[in-house]
Write a protein that binds this DNA or RNA. Structure first.
Lengths: 349, 349
DNA sequence: TTGAAAGCGCTAACAC
DNA sequence: GTGTTAGCGCTTTCAA
């Protein structure tokens, strides 16, 4: 426990070579003779030598550290994203510095600055607002961001790449599905209208209504980030004189909220209200009714953003500013069904 | 973008003091005169100076980096744990290096070594086996682990602290609940029997059976880590000539698997089979039937392990080797009900 | 209370 | 292909 960790110098000494050679063997930067190489390797093994990355990154080399920023790691959506990214990162020899923002731009800013002071090689962020990272990039500070890729959210911006789903198409498909089932009163449940990926879903919904001659029948509920406030918003909508016959929930948490609200009011799903969600997780396929949903390709988010990030770090590929949109898939299950002609009035609580 | 980041030297220069003084102001290690202090602070602000942690940790100071190791960050249980820990960490000025093991000891070992080579100040791990970290700590390598706290799993071991739930009591309570409902054929669904926290739940189950004179009626299914294999194990059990009337699923994923298996066989919950799960997440309270479950205090896991880790890092508190057990809470909901006298035979698929 | 100076372990020139 | 050396930015003796 007390033994000091061996340094590259110890390795070189034991192998009878110079530190430069030892270093070159360890991180394969330049070719090394066969004999020296094996002697160094032997010394590394014998001494249990482990590279001190703090030192190497100080010296100017890559830190092999990637910062990852998500609003809430306990949300399965971000959980899966981080898991997939971490797997990719480990394959490429990077470690992940994980940071959480609680959807708060001030915290986000502080956390990103902390990451930058760690000399991260790249940054992957699901921003709390569409413009926060661009603001940082071009801020008065001249904040020194490494190659950065935004995921799921964020405006296109010169220095930034974005990987996201084609939310417009997703919203459109979901709404068409509902209209096809005979629904004419479809409410949308959003947690916010500040995020373009959410408003794109709403736009898809609007477009579908319009295409079907249902203009002016829009019902948009905004419920905030928490399950409880979202639920409250749905209850309000369901208590109206003319409640919707279907609810399109724009996130997985919103879907949970819509379901709980309907349950709480004693409404049958999909008998009284159809519900369609966003994202696709295991629980949606377990308890009844199985949830109809618009699935986003999380694995592809991870793969595309990682590829792009590494290219940028290596100075390869196209210059920054790309936007990559991936398709969503509508999964029709049990929570959506034919519209009732007249929905029974929800009893007052 | 091209401007080089200012160093402590730049700050000292602009403030007209020595680098030592500047350093002392920045991280408050030693008292500094009022005048110097304000000049330094001014310079820091003006230059937008940010401490280079790679350099300071190289020089021997704390890295303020904590390694966190979990089997799968996409599992909500670990997701919540990491979220809670991250929040605590940020408050104390630490960053989290997150690493995932896929329940594989070899990967775990490799990933922990990567963390150690980052000179982390402390390590929080949910190990893939109870003895992996202890092996690392006492290994021939003399692997140089910083203060380490195990969470949820892990044998008590001299150099290691452990924070976990009182799984024996949890298993006991769940089983008593079922027996109280008249069940005499209760199957337990475990993903593994290699982990003590799981076998403790099984022991609680056994103890409850014994206390009720149901010795010898144990049914223990082991289903592996994936939802599909777990489900297969349950189906097998449910297809027996004398299927169980209740299933006690030992993790949240097992619960999902049990539910899907029952559904697939057309069994009503809890009419045909009662199901009780472990852990408590939002989805369990949304779709029907609401799941009866044994909740673990994840927030307390985070708080206790963090407190302990920080104390160890600061050399305070008791010497390592502690085991802290936190109580579980039984939440009775809809998925458990009275036992049927005779369960209808499950139709072959 | 402050400053000067010595490295922490490593990599990148640059020489051989 | 290999060795020598000069720092990277910082904290920390040690002296003043």
């Amino acid at each position: 426990m007390a033994r000091k960790a061996p340094t590259i110098r110890d390795v070189a000494l034991r192998a009878g070579v110079s530190v430069a050679t030892a270093s070159n063997v360890v991180n394969g930067n330049r070719p090394v003779g066969e004999e020296s190489r094996s002697k160094v390797l032997e010394a590394v093994a014998a001494l249990g030598y482990r590279l001190n990355r703090a030192a190497s990154s100080l010296r100017g080399a890559r830190s092999r550290l990637i910062g990852m920023v998500v609003p809430d790691i306990a949300n399965v959506f971000f959980g899966e994203l981080v898991r997939d990214v971490e797997e990719l990162a480990e394959k490429d020899g990077y470690d992940l510095l994980l940071v959480t923002t609680s959807e708060d731009p001030a915290i986000e800013r502080r956390r990103i600055e902390a990451l930058v002071s760690r000399r991260i090689d790249g940054l992957l962020v699901v921003p709390s607002r569409d413009d926060t990272v661009a603001a940082l990039l071009n801020g008065p500070d001249g904040a020194f961001l490494p190659p950065t890729v935004l995921i799921d959210r964020g405006d296109p911006s010169p220095g930034l790449d974005t990987v996201a789903a084609d939310c417009g198409a997703g919203g459109y498909a979901a709404t068409r599905h509902l209209i096809g089932l005979g629904h004419r009163d479809v409410a949308v449940l959003a947690h916010t209208t500040q995020l373009k990926n959410i408003t794109a879903r709403v736009d898809g919904y609007r477009r579908a209504l319009r295409d079907c001659g249902l203009d002016g029948r829009e019902r948009i509920c905004v419920g905030g980030h928490s399950l409880d406030t979202l639920r409250g918003a749905v209850e309000l909508e369901l208590h109206r004189a003319d409640p919707p016959t279907a609810i399109f929930a724009l996130t997985n948490i919103s879907a949970l909220a819509a379901i709980k609200a309907a349950r709480g009011l004693g409404l049958d799903i999909p008998g009284d209200v159809s519900i369609i969600g966003f994202d696709d997780f295991d629980w949606m396929l377990a308890l009844r009714p199985y949830l109809t949903t618009v699935a986003q390709p999380i694995g592809d988010f991870a793969a595309c953003s990682w590829r792009r990030l590494i290219d940028r770090i290596n100075g390869e590929g196209e210059p920054p500013g790309l936007r990559i949109e991936l398709p969503c898939i509508l999964k029709v299950r049990e929570s959506t069904g034919p519209a009732r002609m007249r929905l029974k009035t929800a009893a007052a609580p």
